[in-house]
Structures are given as structure tokens and as C-alpha cells.
Design a protein around this nucleic acid. Structure first.
Lengths: 257, 257
DNA sequence: GTCTATAACGAGATAGAC
DNA sequence: GTCTATCTCGTTATAGAC
């Protein structure tokens, strides 16, 4: 009895996975707006109504793809955070971890451009993201915050001035996202988060075509500066930091999945 | 004879404009991927084949919309550059101009989110941008460069260190985009350009929902810091600059068009 | 010459009866 | 689950009005 149920559930998991694989293929070919349950079913040799046993609607299938994508890039970022520059608590080591996380995100985006577009590109017309996407969507941001928290604990941060105008927002952001950090850095982190994805999006979406050529070096330099802006170098003098090793490995890990 | 030709051409211009207006309406409702010549024609009371007198293909209509959008935001940025902080050559005035241009771009994006998505969001599946889009696409970037060039000429820039690894890229970028500027700033400007649109995209595409609330103040602070990173404050000590006036007006101008 | 309308093609989506 | 009749789409050829 339970063996039968196990087999059924295994089959269900396999079919669900096959549906998502095929849906991702169509995502790449036609874009999220044209994702059609019927076409997925046809390609899998199923009939469209059978798909509804696995996903109750097209939007639910889209949601599953979006959650998977957020989880995928989030996991890559978390791995990069865990393994980068493991033996260092100097300011430079924290900056190296920041760069490693950013490079991991970029590597994932280069390896999965259509899933990247799905989550960080234009919203899909007629689709509105449900609550279930919020937690996965925040994973990369939480990793960036963790990097800054580590640096704050171990070497201190260079705090930017906090204008009176932004103080309420900064205090709310800090309370919501990083209770352990001084409010002044909260807006910097959120801004750096958005700016990091600005760099990635311009590369993935083709704005750098015919403009930037040495893209990895360019990216590494830019996110390193971003890390400085967040205050990661602490009160140390503005020096040179070698983060050349952080990108290649991280990109490789990102491409695997 | 010339009056007749004039009338014909006037009619042609009007119909062309009507087609684009309706196409933009559909862009907002269904997204660029589902833009359909037939639907545009139907809505205008024309027959679909008649549209081919005005646009030789669906992709050419898309190209026209893309060029219009780039020109629209480019013009808004150029106006902001021309009119912001007109009586100042102090470092703070250049930073204020930088912020004003950024705020103008953000204001345009908030007023035209679907056209923003068309040019700075996910690429349209199956569409590849022709040469004709390159020049309009670079207008905002050229304005940012102009702001930095002004500052360089009048008060000097705080130059970031240029690593050996990035030197060839920096020299190529400077030669291509800003022959009057020191190579070290070229990567900074390009990065700031991408990061500026990262901030705007996150706001327009909903990544700031439930995260950032005081969006204009947050944005202004972030792009001000971006301007500092580019070196706009020159060799002056890092002080406070009041750019509070730059956003509202620019956003208003952006929303007009 | 300039435009619109008709009709058609091949491809694909969709709704509903069975 | 299957089949069919009826939609959509981009695009072209052609005929005729101004």
C-alpha cells in the first residue's frame, strides 16, 4: 500500500519535473508571455487537461518556475558566500566575499539568461506574483546582508552619513532586514543590491553589446567599488584589493545547475 | 500639386502616429511579445494588410516604438541636463546636475513603465534590434558623460585607481565614448550608467515592493553616491550636498511627454 | 503613384461536442 | 482523451478607388 503510494508519488514528482523542464525550454524559445499549458502538454505527448492535475493554472506553473529560479540563484549565492575566502577576517577578505557572491550571481545569470529574465526582467503581463515568491526572491539580498553583517562584527564598517530626510526609511529598513546593523548602511545595501542587478541586467539584456568588452574584469571592478561604497573596507585606508580569483570559480559553480 | 502631396504626407504622418499610439496601448496591455499587427489594425478600423503601407513588418513597428522610447527618455535626460543647476560650476553643482538627470530618467520611467520595460527590460523573443536603435539608445549615456566632462573641465575629477587588468578596457572605452576624459573614469561612468538603471528597474519592475517605501529620497541618495563614485565632487572633501530640489521638477517634466 | 480592401496561405491556439 | 470547427496570427498577391 505504502509502496504503491510511494511509486505514485515518485511518478508524480517525475512528471512535475518533466513539465517544468519543457516549460523552461519554451520560456527560452518564446518568452514567459507566450508560455502555454497546451504547448507544454503537446510536447510531452500529454493532453492539456492532464496538466491541470499537476499545475492548476498557467500562472501556477509560472510561479513554480519563478520560485525555482529564485531558489537556484539564491543557492548559488549562498554557496559562494559559504566557500569564498574562508580563512580571512581582514577587511579585504570581506570585500572578496562580496565580490564572490556578486560573481556567482552573474555566473548564474549568464548560464540561465531566460530564467534571469523571468525573475529580474519585465513583469509578465497579466501575471501577479503571489506571496510564495517573496521568500525565495529575498535569498540573494539576505546573502549580501550577511556579508555586511560579518564585516560589521569583525572589522567594523565605514558608515556613510545619514541625512535627516532618509533617516526614517533607513531605520525601518534596518529593523526589517538587518537588525544587527547600523541604520545608516541599510539604504546602501539595498541600493547596492539593485545596482548589482543593474550591472548583470545590462550585460544579459544586451545593453553592453558594442560597449563593454572585458566584461568579467569590468564587472568585478564595479562590484568591488560597490562593496567599498557599502563600507566593507571598514575604516581602513582605501587600498587595492586583489579579487581576481573570485569570479571564474564562482561563475563555474553558477553554470553547473 | 505640392499642396496635394502635402495633404497626403500629412495624412500619412497622422495614420503612422495613430498606429503607434494604438500599438503602445497594446504594449501596455499585453506586452511586447504579443503585439499584433492585426489587433492594431482592427482597433483602428483598418484591414491588416493596409498597415503594411506604414510599417513593412511587425518587427519594424516594434523598432519604431523602441526608437521612440529611447528618444523620449533621451530627450528628457537632455532637458534635465540643460536646465538643472544652471548657475554653478562648483563641484556640488555638477553633482546636482548628475542627480537631476538621474531623477529625470526615473520620472520618465515611472510615467512610461511599459515603454521602459520595452527598452530596458527583457529582450523581446525573436526580435533582434537593428542598427537604427543604437544611436537613440546611447542618448542617456551621452548625457551622463557630458555631466562628467563638464565637471572634469571646470573642477577636476577625483580619479579612481586604474588596475592594470582593466587598463586596456578603460582606454578603449575612453577613446570610444569620451576622448576628453582620463581613461580611469570611463569604466566608472559605464558602471554608474548600468547601476542607475538597476535602481530604476528594481523600482519599476516591483522588486522594491514591500522593501523600499520612501522611494524618491532613497533613489536620490543612491544616485548622489553614484555621482561621488564617478568622482564628481572632485578633490573636495566628502561633504553633504543638497540635491533635494532636483527630483520633483525633473520627474514632472518626464511625466509630461 | 498612393492607398485600401479582398482573399488567401500556413501555422498555431481555442472551445466544445463526443 | 480525441476530434473538429472556429478562432487567431504574419504575411503576400491582387484588384480597384482616389
Amino acid at each position: 500500500m505504502s509502496a504503491i503510494r510511494g511509486a505514485r508519488e515518485r511518478a508524480r514528482i517525475e512528471v512535475t519535473a518533466a513539465i517544468k523542464v519543457e516549460a523552461r525550454r519554451q520560456l527560452a524559445a518564446e518568452g514567459a508571455a507566450k508560455l502555454s499549458l497546451r504547448a507544454v502538454a503537446r510536447e510531452l505527448g500529454m493532453v492539456s487537461s492532464a496538466l491541470y492535475r499537476y499545475f492548476p493554472s498557467r500562472d501556477e506553473l509560472l510561479t513554480a518556475l519563478i520560485v525555482d529560479a529564485y531558489d537556484s540563484v539564491g543557492e548559488v549565492a549562498e554557496n559562494a558566500h559559504r566557500t569564498a575566502a574562508p580563512h580571512g577576517s581582514a577587511p579585504a577578505a570581506h570585500l572578496a566575499r562580496w565580490v564572490a557572491v556578486a560573481c556567482a550571481v552573474r555566473g548564474w545569470a549568464l548560464a540561465h539568461p531566460h530564467e534571469y529574465a523571468l525573475i529580474y526582467g519585465s513583469p509578465v503581463p497579466g501575471y501577479s506574483a503571489p506571496q510564495a515568491t517573496i521568500a525565495p526572491a529575498s535569498r540573494v539580498g539576505l546573502v549580501l546582508i550577511a556579508v555586511v553583517e560579518d564585516a560589521h562584527r569583525e572589522v567594523g564598517l565605514a558608515l556613510p552619513p545619514l541625512t535627516e530626510e532618509l533617516r526614517p526609511e533607513a531605520e525601518r529598513l534596518a529593523a526589517d532586514l538587518a537588525p544587527g546593523l547600523p541604520p545608516a548602511v541599510a539604504p546602501s545595501i539595498v541600493a547596492a543590491w539593485a545596482q548589482l542587478f543593474g550591472l548583470v541586467s545590462f550585460e544579459i539584456f544586451g545593453q553592453f553589446d558594442r560597449v563593454v568588452e572585458a566584461r568579467e574584469a569590468f564587472f568585478r571592478q564595479a562590484v568591488e567599488e560597490l562593496g567599498r561604497t557599502v563600507g566593507l573596507l571598514g575604516t581602513a585606508a582605501r587600498g587595492t584589493v586583489d579579487t581576481a580569483g573570485q569570479c571564474a570559480g564562482a561563475a563555474g559553480r553558477g553554470a553547473e545547475r
